[in-house]
């Protein structure tokens, strides 16, 4: 199945990312070992010049990685007719043991890349290399993650066979299924929506308050991550059935399909951006800056936290609109 155009594009993108991040990782090791901004040696000047290249190429491949997450999900949905038993992306991902690990790896890379790019931007604005060491230490975490993701993706696509019989969302997100998907599907929609409301209020409140209070920015990270988890649980338990207007259809992937107006993309995009920005605000706030860079860092934290708050607000508004418009009444 490797000769499928989106698969070729995805493999090309992840291959390019792996090569670039591999090289960037090696440079990160060199920089962490020999970085000394007080030294005017040729080696130090070379390192300073190369940081511009690394920032640019890593920003490029991480943007590519973010786009490839959307392309991967879209393609998984589009390939469903090729597998017996597949009705949506879940069936395509279930067609190989590497399907869901690839998706999780891509999501992890998306958030890690978001945080790294935010730190990089702040560091470039700060002008005194305030965050250079933590930034390149972060690259040493990001590089293996991207390499692993490229490996998972290649294994997944090589393992895909056209005659595979797979199981789809009805099996994974059935209320009577003993796995996590079944537990989330069986969650009381009233509880799920209340929990979502509470999580969104907490995340939005911290997001708007983070500019003035550093602790709020640091707290925004775990709260945004928790809100992301609660939001996914709410989508499975309540929001998806409202979209399908079927109480027992809980799939969080079918809402990406054309017949539901691709509404899933409108729902997930602000959620992912909000979570990424929240995590980035927390990490930037937690990093030790320099005296001269304090104002730049504070402005950046404020911008990221505000983006996170707006993203969660948007997600909440879209989710509420979907529930409001639905002809289904899950809660009496």
């Amino acid at each position: 199945m490797i000769f499928h155009p989106p698969i070729l594009a995805l493999i090309g993108a992840s291959g390019l990312s792996a090569v670039v991040l591999g090289g960037a990782g090696l440079f990160a090791g060199r920089l962490l070992a020999g970085w000394d901004p007080t030294n005017g040696s040729e080696r130090q000047i070379g390192l300073e010049k190369t940081t511009h290249l690394v920032s640019t190429v890593v920003a490029f491949v991480l943007t590519l990685e973010a786009a490839s997450l959307v392309l991967f999900a879209f393609n998984a949905d589009r390939m469903a007719p090729l597998f017996v038993g597949a009705m949506c992306a879940v069936g395509t991902l279930n067609a190989s043991v590497w399907g869901f690990p690839t998706l999780w790896a891509k999501i992890a890379v998306f958030f890690a890349a978001f945080v790294w790019l935010a730190v990089d931007r702040v560091d470039l604005r700060a002008r005194d290399w305030a965050l250079i060491r933590p930034k390149y230490a972060g690259l040493l975490i990001l590089a293996p993650l991207v390499l692993a993701e490229a490996g998972f993706e290649l294994a997944y696509f090589l393992d895909l066979k056209a005659d595979t019989i797979t199981s789809c969302c009805g099996k994974l997100f059935g209320e009577d299924k003993p796995a996590l998907g079944g537990d989330l599907a069986a969650l009381d929609p009233r509880v799920a929506l209340w929990a979502l409301g509470a999580a969104l209020v907490a995340a939005i409140g911290l997001g708007f308050g983070a500019r003035r209070r550093r602790w709020a920015a640091v707290a925004l990270g775990p709260v945004a991550l928790a809100a992301f988890g609660v939001a996914i649980a709410a989508v499975i338990s309540a929001i998806a059935p409202y979209v399908y207007e079927q109480p027992h259809h809980h799939c969080p992937f079918c809402i990406l399909k054309r017949e539901y107006g691709h509404v899933g993309f409108a729902l997930y995009l602000p959620l992912f951006v909000a979570t990424g920005a929240g995590l980035a605000a927390a990490i930037v706030a937690a990093l030790p800056g320099t005296t001269t860079s304090r104002a730049t860092i504070r402005t950046a934290i404020g911008g990221l936290a505000k983006t996170s708050a707006i993203g969660f607000t948007l997600f909440g508004a879209i989710a509420a609109a979907l529930v409001w418009r639905s002809g289904l009444a899950l809660i009496g």
Binding site: P5, P6, L8, A9, L10, L16, A67, L71, F74, R78
Partner: peptide, 13 residues
């Protein structure tokens, strides 16, 4: 969108 994204990934990238 899938065609455009794939085409962009194969040429613009």
């Amino acid at each position: 969108a899938l065609e455009i994204a794939t085409l962009a990934a194969l040429t613009v990238a």
